[in-house]
């Protein structure tokens, strides 16, 4: 866990990326243009990054590859809920519900 003054420094570092990216062209002047190839490649950045954060949490257990774990089951339920329903709360209730039943109810 990052803590104390170092955590605040970290928060400002994360915040600086907000200004750097959102402010880039708005602050830098409208003359500049993004190369089209780069612009197309950048469209894939959020999906790749989100997945690179999600999959390790679902597939690893204490740093080791272990697909048979309660978080993966809960994750599949979350994906189904997000695809099937437009209710923004459902994936959270379904995912947390399944994880809690498996971990605390069944002791997995």
């Amino acid at each position: 866990m990052v803590e104390g003054a170092w955590l605040w420094l970290t928060l400002f570092a994360i915040g600086s990326t907000t200004i750097l990216t959102r402010g880039s062209f708005v602050l830098g002047g409208e003359g500049a243009r993004l190369p089209p190839a780069l612009q197309r490649a950048l469209r894939y950045a959020p999906a790749a990054a989100l997945s690179a954060l999600i999959m390790p949490d679902l597939l690893l257990d204490a740093g080791a590859f272990d697909p048979a774990n309660p978080k993966l089951v809960a994750g599949i339920v979350v994906a189904l809920a997000a695809v099937r329903s437009r209710n923004p709360w459902l994936p959270f209730f379904a995912g947390m519900g399944v994880l809690l039943v498996l971990r605390k109810g069944l002791g997995w």
Binding site: T17, T21, R22, F25, V26, P46, A49
Partner: peptide
């Protein structure tokens, strides 16, 4: 920092379009 930057990169496109 780099992870936050990548997650925010889409805003560079928005910023360029809105400038």
């Amino acid at each position: 920092f780099v992870t936050a930057l990548v997650l925010n990169l889409r805003f560079v496109i928005f910023s360029a379009a809105l400038a």
